[in-house]
Amino acid sequence: MDPLLPVATPPSNPDGGDFFGKSRSHSGGMRRSTDVFGILVATSAGIVPLVILALLAFLLYNAWPALHFNGWGFLTGNSWNLGNQYGDLVKVRGVEVLPGARFSILFLIFGTLASSVIALVLAIPIGVGAAVFLADAVPPRLRNSASLLVELLAAVPSVVFGLWGYVVLIPFTARHVYPLLGHVLAFIPFFGPPTYNGYGLLTSGIVLALMVVPLITANMREAIAATPAALREAGLSTGATRFEVVRKIVLPRLRLPLIGVSTLALGRALGETMAVLMVSGNAINGLPHNVYSPISTMAAFMVSQLDSALQDPSGMAVSSITEIGLILLVLSMAVNGIARLLVSRTQPR
């Protein structure tokens, strides 16, 4: 898993200029066309849009046969079927495929969204709570070390999270937590038994929550710390306790940044691969029946199925895997794009 991205904390525009730095006096001197250095840096920055274009173009190009063959049904059905691998190729809609081949991934889209939503439902309160605790309850001397504990969680590699899920979390939840949960929460739809064996939607959500929560905590902690002292003092002067000041003055102001950073966390959860692969149960062709049911996600499915897709001599299976990649790319770019807009719009002034 990626360590915390420093950009996730809103740039505080340290030199105090306006956000886009329009008034920088030196910028005029840099626009000379003879400036080789200027060209060099501009080219380097140009790599970024180029990479995005290359990703889109390459995936689109390779997914094209699948887009054509699968049509919109790709998004609405629950059938990942390579067809008869030992049959002769047949022509369907002008494309050669294995007999019986049919590709659709509603179950993956659902699994991806559901596990990410569960992750957020868990991560937001825990992340905000931990942020408040770190900002307001931990003595300043210990604050950095305590924060480090949470932030290092983001640095743990995805496979190690998967390993931990596999060795610790799954046996523990399957034996002790889910049976109890299924019993107590039976009145809530989708929370009743059977609680299955630990591999599944809820476990994926928990692991994803742990992976994205540091993002929320780090950002919210900084945002809480950036709350003007005058506001807090005003609250305290009315006789409110520190807790009441946080709950009623500090946190309500941070609603928008929280939405931004949560969207960012959503983007990260959607694309997480290895850990989910190891704990999701890798269910195929069906929607989960309750939160304990095995699922699969788009990213995990790409890793687990590329191998068998390679056995399809028509190439349609690899092309369909690429189509999943394309959808994931577009989805993550959209979520992240929106999140970044929200984060930059909602910086505490």
Binding site: L270, S332, V335, N336
Partner: peptide, 8 residues
């Protein structure tokens, strides 16, 4: 780009 999943 930071948000693009590594598997992609």
């Amino acid at each position: 780009l930071v948000g693009v999943p590594s598997i992609v």
